[in-house]
Design a protein around this nucleic acid. Structure first.
Lengths: 396, 396
DNA sequence: TCCACTTAGTTAAATCTATTAACTAAAGCA
DNA sequence: TGCTTTAGTTAATAGATTTAACTAAGTGGA
């Protein structure tokens, strides 16, 4: 399935109202400072409709008015912005090596963030721990008097397309966990939207939804950590997140880039993960699971072996990027995940490979921009918060 | 961009009406024989609304009534079907080795098809030739008195996401051709929707839209011919076709599956096309471009060299399928293109590879079904016709 | 045979949303 | 000061869906 963050396909007048409201809100998100007249021009709605909806959104704390926007020789319009003062979005990220939670505004500004480096054990224990973190954050005076629109949770594995169930998280040893249901009893007072998604999908969503300025047509986020995954988002007013028939969209770590290559834990040979991933680099350099990868590599300094391993991994990452380019062709690529901490020895070969191999099909086309997030600790959690916003905007 | 075959994101009452009409039409397409009550239940619209819209669609020749559907202990409902008698959809496919046109019904039944094996030269000449074929078909008594909803044209190369412009067709030597504009002067009397799309996208669309029974959640069509391309469709009421920022979605022939492998005409090394494609097989077996590939291979009989080449190509195709599975994760895969004429020596290794390597991530999940279209001569043209239907349904 | 019950589908009034058209507001400029 | 332009609001209008009551057409039991 694609989760579209769009209403269903048919409906009544109330549905139309929601659609238009969400569309107006989306216009302000993508064009901060737009006036009512700007919105009317973009959405094809009339000034009267826009005026009425904006009025309601101002009263409900979704929008705020800003300065006057001078217009050539006419009455200036009033700039509109997302209201960053009255609501809060919560996001949580269950990572292989820790739990992260964030609270952010409608515009994506992070108000609070917390991080514990504690590997999750069972779903039940993790839910307990996460609930404590979330409740503590919820009670923080910075956000305590804001209205909470909901909570998004991300997990390191594929989520079923139709229901919020984590299908498999090999690094956690979790299978078919309806995590929101496990978590809910610990946070009975948290209402609003509750969402569960894969970490890379959520990260991609956040980069897209909270993009500074007009978001690109589509974004693919590559999450390079213990394993390799990717998420994709496209669509304008209503972002689409393809999940696939089984939720396996973006499991690019198990695409084959070296037939007959090394064995992967998935059972195949030559998966991308055998070349670039936390575990592959550990295996190549003999770094134990218990050690911190970044620290262990830093400790070895400018070692030739290390350099070679990182360069080869980087090149494999470059191949992955190129293959994504020729399969999904996003308008923008974002690189994140814990491997980015390993620095330029890994990143540069990847970007180089893509740069030198990219543009052969459509000469003269604009190159695809790549954004590297060197520290993506809270990227997924913030993306989950973005999803809450998208969902809430439809229900507002 | 994704072309959604859905209306824009905001609108007035008229827009709502179109949305609901299209939704009702889509319900009948996916559930032939549905009654008004069934439609109301599925779309969440009221019986009154459905009744009114259905009445209008009956009068306009989009729907027809069928037999009574007995209901347990109540008044039986009247089955509804797409009306196959009053409209016609035209599709045309510009292939590297010929032109094909089809005329089909709203339900996807092919009424007429024509094929000339004549390699296209210039866009202008091709347009002239195609126009003659289309006009001749349009005048055929079988469809002459039907209302034509439009014309869809497919081309063997990426189409720009925002405008109907063929970006590049290496095998035709065409660059940046607004083919519909070239064609239009030759067919001034053809009105309705005019669409241009990539051949694989259109084929995927047709397989999805005209699927017998409820379509799968998403379909990826792999077009294996002179080159290798793929197209994807997903979405329920309003099918989505991702095109990407540059229209390069599905250019899987240039994904790298053998780093450092053979040189590809695109400039890179180890592209999938160097292993499986018409030209790669020709190169391996020394078959000239002027010869018919299928005939040349058939002529060599059960030759060990041929078998080995086809097996290797098939395995490469299997890798591609597996990689698509882990990148796009469609609910169904469809294999087509002229290479399918080469038979089981190629197809079996591909399916075998996928079968034996598929299911490692989510054990116990249903396997992804693969449909092989052994003769896909008119698949793309019919898909283009399907796109016309989807477009027209929104404007009806 | 009759009658209660169920489900399908239609109709007319009511509700609600966006539009239209006329208005006020607020700026620049001659 | 007055003209022009653009922004935004307001009241009346048009139009789509819903609601609620209705008719239609079956089954099954007494």
């Amino acid at each position: 399935m694609v989760s579209t963050f769009a209403p269903q396909a048919a409906g009544d007048l109330n549905f139309l109202k929601k659609l238009n409201r969400s569309s107006i809100l989306g216009t302000v998100r993508r064009y901060p400072g737009a006036t009512r007249a700007d919105i009317a021009a973009r959405t094809q709605l009339t000034k009267a409709t826009v005026g009425g909806v904006v009025q309601a959104l101002l009263e409900r704390g979704w929008l705020r008015e800003g300065e006057l926007q001078p217009r050539g020789g006419g009455r200036p319009g009033r700039a509109l912005y997302l209201d960053d003062a009255h609501h809060v979005l919560l996001g949580a990220d269950i990572g292989v090596r820790g739990l992260r939670v964030v609270a952010c505004t409608l515009g994506g500004e992070v108000l609070l963030q917390r991080y514990v480096t504690e590997a999750p054990t069972t779903p039940e224990e993790t839910a307990k721990r996460l609930a404590a973190m979330l409740r503590a954050m919820r009670d923080d005076p910075v956000i305590a008097d804001r209205h909470c629109l909901g909570l998004g949770v991300t997990v390191p594995g594929p989520v079923a397309p139709e229901q919020p169930i984590l299908r498999l998280a090999p690094n956690l040893g979790w299978v078919d966990v309806a995590f929101l249901e496990v978590l809910r009893p610990y946070l009975p007072e948290f209402d609003g939207a509750w969402l569960l998604d894969n970490e890379a999908n959520a990260a991609a969503f956040g980069e897209f939804y909270f993009h500074d300025g007009i978001p690109p047509e589509s974004i693919v986020y590559i999450s390079a950590g213990s394993g390799i995954g990717s998420g994709m988002v496209t669509g304008d007013n209503f972002p689409l997140v393809p999940r696939g028939g089984q939720g396996l969209v973006g499991e690019i770590g198990h695409t084959i880039v070296q037939p007959g290559g090394l064995y992967c834990h998935c059972g195949n040979r030559g998966c991308a993960e055998t070349l670039v991933s936390g575990w592959a680099i550990r295996a190549s350099l003999g770094i134990a699971d218990t050690e911190n990868l970044e620290a262990a590599i830093a400790a070895r300094g400018d070692d030739a072996d290390v350099n070679a391993v990182l360069r080869r991994a980087g090149e494999a990452l470059g191949i992955l990027i190129l293959n994504l380019h020729h399969t999904l062709n996003p308008a923008m690529l974002v690189l994140g995940g814990s491997l980015m901490h390993l620095g330029e020895r890994l990143i540069e070969p990847a970007l180089d490979y893509f740069e030198t191999h990219q543009n052969d099909l459509l000469r003269g086309t604009q190159r695809v921009p790549i954004k590297v997030i060197h520290d993506s600790t809270f990227t997924a959690a913030r993306g989950a918060a973005a999803q809450v916003m998208a969902k809430a905007a439809l229900e507002a």
